[in-house]
Amino acid sequence: MATALVTGSNRGIGLEFCRQYADAGWKVLACCRRPEQASDLQGLAIHHPSVSIHQLDLGNFDQIDALAHAQASETIDVLINNAGIYGDSGRNVLGALDYELWARVLKINAEAPVKMTEAFLPHVSRSERKLVVAITSLMGSMADNSSGGAIMYRTSKAALNAAMKSLAIDLKPRGVGVMILHPGWVKTDMGGSNAPTSPAESVAGMRRTIEGFALRDSGRFLDFRGRELPW
């Protein structure tokens, strides 16, 4: 049985990853900050005994280390760094930027996925698939930025992309791959109701891209349909 670890698993894209992998017969380690409030995830775990729920605040790196230690005997085929926060709002503009919030957005969106990769690298390295996935955004692309704004979110995703590109190079000699995936504009709490893509469609596309991964593709910036994106 293959195993996936998913962060931000209580809703949206993360929950859909858990659902689809569980339906496909995978073992799923579903991580979220407040499991007691994750009713949909709890329901999924009731129907799929292969889904286990783990409390994890990605802003607390000691918790990441503790979870990795508690799961020391686990083998993880695909580590999916999905959790993220937006931070930007209509009031959070140049001249009134909340720099403490910006630091938190950078920590959750860029530093935490690197910390997760570092902490769970032994678990991933001994698996068959040996794959780390970072759910990023096209908003992290400088070439694509024609509208400005969203400074916190854009910089955090650009930093994530740069970090994961470096990890792809560093980990390739160990046979560990890194995928940098844009899920599309998705109907979630962050994406909003006007988004054209459902979580089910986005995750199905990302799973196909993950299934088609070869180590030579490590470090590429792709969308959920497997198309190359500009940095």
Score class of each variant (00 low, 15 high):
117 T>D: 00
15 L>V: 00
61 F>C: 02
197 T>Y: 10
10 N>G: 07
95 G>K: 12
200 A>H: 09
138 L>H: 05
25 G>T: 03
61 F>T: 09
161 N>L: 13
203 V>D: 15
167 L>H: 07
62 D>L: 07
80 I>Y: 00
137 S>F: 11
66 A>V: 02
79 L>E: 04
139 M>W: 15
59 G>V: 10
32 C>N: 04
77 D>W: 08
80 I>G: 09
3 T>V: 13
144 D>H: 15
152 M>P: 00
83 A>I: 08
219 G>Q: 12
161 N>I: 07
164 M>Y: 09
40 D>P: 00
149 G>Q: 00
58 L>H: 00
160 L>Y: 10
75 T>A: 13
226 G>F: 01
190 M>T: 12
109 N>R: 07
16 E>P: 00
15 L>M: 02
140 G>R: 11
180 I>F: 10
99 Y>S: 04
20 Q>Y: 03
8 G>H: 03
125 S>E: 10
173 P>V: 05
134 A>W: 00
128 E>L: 02
43 G>C: 13
40 D>K: 09
113 P>A: 15
172 K>S: 10
43 G>H: 15
51 V>K: 13
211 E>D: 02
169 I>D: 14
24 A>G: 05
21 Y>V: 01
66 A>L: 11
119 A>Q: 15
13 I>P: 07
37 Q>Y: 15
46 I>D: 08
4 A>N: 01
100 E>N: 10
20 Q>S: 04
198 S>H: 10
64 I>N: 06
196 P>G: 09
76 I>W: 06
137 S>C: 09
101 L>G: 08
202 S>M: 08
38 A>T: 02
139 M>Q: 08
71 Q>K: 15
8 G>Y: 02
169 I>Y: 14
24 A>T: 00
79 L>G: 02
27 K>Q: 05
151 I>R: 05
159 A>R: 01
16 E>Y: 03
217 D>H: 09
155 T>L: 14
88 D>N: 06
207 R>P: 07
153 Y>Q: 09
128 E>F: 02
40 D>L: 09
144 D>G: 14
114 V>F: 08
195 A>D: 13
200 A>L: 05
163 A>N: 10
226 G>C: 01
102 W>C: 02
60 N>Y: 02
24 A>E: 05
98 D>F: 06
156 S>F: 03
212 G>Y: 00
135 I>V: 09
76 I>G: 13
208 R>A: 04
28 V>H: 10
30 A>W: 12
188 T>A: 15
171 L>D: 02
77 D>P: 03
134 A>C: 11
201 E>R: 15
51 V>N: 06
85 I>M: 15
154 R>Q: 06
131 L>S: 10
159 A>K: 07
18 C>L: 01
25 G>Y: 02
189 D>R: 14
35 P>L: 08
19 R>L: 01
60 N>S: 11
62 D>V: 07
49 P>F: 15
77 D>V: 03
50 S>P: 02
74 E>K: 14
37 Q>G: 05
78 V>G: 01
117 T>G: 12
69 H>W: 04
142 M>D: 11
209 T>E: 05
171 L>R: 10
72 A>G: 03
93 V>C: 06
89 S>I: 03
145 N>V: 06
181 L>T: 06
47 H>T: 11
107 K>M: 14
104 R>C: 05
221 F>E: 07
216 R>V: 13
131 L>K: 03
158 A>V: 09
31 C>K: 12
226 G>M: 01
99 Y>L: 04
161 N>R: 14
61 F>G: 00
